[in-house]
Design a protein around this nucleic acid. Sequence first.
RNA 1: UGCCCGAUGGUGUAAUGGCAGCACGAAUGGUUCUGGCCCAUUUAGUCUAGGUUCGAGUCCUAGUCGGGCAGCCA
Length: 557
Amino acid sequence: MPENASKNFIEEIVEENIASGLIKTPITRFPPEPNGYLHIGHAKAICLDFGIAKEYGGYCNLRMDDTNPTKEDVEYVDSIQEDVRWLGWEWKNLYYASDYYQQIYDWAIHLIREGKAFVCDLSADEIRWHRGTLTEPGKESPYRNRSAEENLDLFERMNKGEFAEGARVLRAKIDMAHPNLNLRDPVIYRIVHTPHHRTGNTWHVYPMYDFAHGQSDAIEGITHSLCTLEFEDHRPLYNWFIENLPVPHKPRQIEFARLNITYTVMSKRKLLQLVKDKHVSGWDDPRMPTICGLRRRGYTPESVREFVAKAGLSKRPQTVDLALLDFCLRQDLEEKATRRMVVLDPLKVVITNFPEETELYEGQNLPSDPARGSRMVPLTREIYIEREDFMENPPKKFFRLYPGGEVRLRYACYITCTEVIKDAEGNITELRATFDPLSRGATTPDNRKVKGTIHWVSATENTPLEVRLYDPLFSKENPDDVEEGKSFLDNLNPESLKVVTAYGENDLAHAQPGERFQFERKGYFCVDKDSRPGAVVINRTTTLRDVWGKRFGDKAE
RNA sequence: UGCCCGAUGGUGUAAUGGCAGCACGAAUGGUUCUGGCCCAUUUAGUCUAGGUUCGAGUCCUAGUCGGGCAGCCA
């Protein structure tokens, strides 16, 4: 670990705890509820939980927080494991909160015996009335002073399935006037008859989050239970249980701010809505901030981890620029991604003085690393160039192709535009050009400079590709910033996906799903899982940084 | 008109009573067979008012602003 790098506040706490002898090494846990897919916000928690443990020689458990059988499913426990592993982490133990049901139940009995919990027959609504408001104290339940014997009997019968859901709950007996609502005799067990995905019909009562989480931490010997800010108000309750139960270990809960990113939404509810209403193709749609979506889009685990690290950690709500994620991706792939030439928006150029035969030119797979080898690219009389690489009436400082102008075809030769061919509507349909035979190999004996180098592909020797061009899913930095009566869906970016047929170098026909490339001058791309031999599908992960496009992109038309 | 938490450039994050720094973004220039990468430069910040102190972004008080909390969700 770098000694002089600044520490975040949780690292500081852990270091203090080690220095004072409170702990030898930190033991953490990542505790998702298996009721949905992980997103990049979870990636922050994952990197924190696993990262802290690793940094200080401890370990981290993966714990499925499965205390609500009505919402959870095995489908999710598989995807969660896959996503955590993909991010590059390995857990010490895979646990389930449901593994601890018996112990947690016994602790509830303990509380009852101690006179610190009671069975309450109030309905959900009645409990709500009794809870009071933010400014007024609550009222005690009429069932609050039942005898321990009666409570025990009732609680056992609740668990045997004798009562309907909602008929009774078990509540901790704390303080109905407490300014923190969480301590106003919170419900700790409720009746649920839905079978649990792991324990089946064994139980008819299930512990609430507050009664399961801290105790699960205690059982596992968790030293630092890291969670997001909305649980801050629950910490006094978390501690109350730890203090009032004969737990084998006392964990400490520490909260941090959850991660938001510009131009996206992060709540499970909203992501679910995007999927259900078919605004995206599924949880792994490459525009989704889910881990599986990022993976499919082409982001690397390294880039996601770096992004999370760069975003930092604190207790104030953070909204990080999406640009930072893309920066991390480009930084990672700059030195890794194989380079290829692909024309996304083709404009045909006929090189009138070019021989009929195909000529082959050598292109580096990764110019900065000769060890990565090269491939031969076929140049023919007719080629495609990017439509935006030609302008009939170029502005100053445009150094691509224009009538009478000369550019370098990457790795091949210099061409000069001699003629612009248009259709009846005046659209440019084709260009004529001549090449300088002395420029073969892309330099000339006279060493003359050409300002522009553009990518190209043979019009006759190429492979067509379905390329999916992604842009942010929302057109507003904060999609939730809406007028009265509107929702985040009104901020969906109608142009978040454009599908084009592109033409690429021939070997791309064999590209495998998951394979990543830099298409020179265009961006980073990743072969989609929909890809088939003969029908290659490629996602644009992100564009290259583009000064020209930013400055003149719109005006240049 | 309750309780809890927070407030440093556009964004994120450091400075732990002693020169407000780093990264992203933005801008400018250099370099270049990718208008990429790289290099250099620039831009821009301590919420307010008091107090403690030789000295306050940091400590104290009050205020302002922002976030969270009234599921038998997590």
